[in-house]
Amino acid sequence: MSDEPFLARWSRRKLDAKSEQPPPEPAAVQAPEPVPEPPPPPELPPVESLGKDSDYSAFLKAGVPQELKQAALQKLWESDPALMAPEVMDLHMGDYATPVAEVVKTAWRLGKGVLDAAELAAEEEEKAKAETPPAPPESDS
């Protein structure tokens, strides 16, 4: 190891590396290729006249200003309530604050593991017995 501090050695090596590199050769200057102009926007109907059954595909083509495209899509979403409603099968729409035990019925029991069919039937029978009121005692009069 040398007695030279780390940062001084690092700085010296960076300067040496820069001085050893040959200067970059000037690249041949090329004229930039002309960018083709986007096609003019197609003749579009006024956004106010659009409805649920209108064709919105013309608003999604290239060359349509972003503001006009957004206005047409907003009109589409407003025109059909089914499009504004949340997706029924969306997994992120559920209320995960509810207890799982009330939502999911399972054969897993704490301390017992997974119950088989006979054990589940016996448990249901016990539950039914507990829910039915006892019969009043018969009196011999």
Rank of each mutant, 00 (worst) to 15 (best):
G111M: 03
V103E: 07
A85D: 07
S2W: 03
S11Y: 12
E25Y: 01
K18H: 15
V100R: 09
K52D: 12
K129C: 00
L120Q: 12
P134A: 12
Q30K: 13
Q66N: 06
P137V: 07
L44P: 00
P38C: 01
Q70T: 09
A8L: 10
K75M: 04
S19V: 15
S2G: 14
P22A: 12
E131H: 03
E125F: 03
W108P: 00
S11W: 12
K112S: 13
L110A: 12
V47S: 00
T132R: 13
A101Y: 12
A117I: 09
P45N: 03
P65V: 00
V64I: 05
L110D: 15
T132E: 13
G94F: 06
A135C: 05
V64Y: 02
L44N: 01
T132G: 03
S49A: 15
Q21Y: 10
P24E: 13
D140F: 12
A97L: 10
A97T: 14
P41A: 06
V29S: 07
S2E: 08
Y96A: 03
P99K: 10
P24Y: 05
E124A: 15
L15T: 13
L60K: 11
P136E: 06
A17P: 04
K129Q: 06
A97M: 08
A85T: 07
A27W: 04
T132C: 09
K75G: 00
P42Y: 00
D140Q: 13
A118T: 08
P86I: 01
E87F: 11
E87W: 10
D3N: 14
V35I: 10
G94M: 05
E25F: 01
P136Y: 00
V35E: 10
P133M: 07
A135P: 06
E37Y: 01
Q74M: 09
E123G: 06
A122Y: 02
E67W: 05
T106Y: 03
E124M: 12
P41G: 02
W77E: 07
A31V: 13
P22H: 08
P136Q: 06
Q30E: 11
P24M: 06
V103C: 08
M93F: 02
S11F: 14
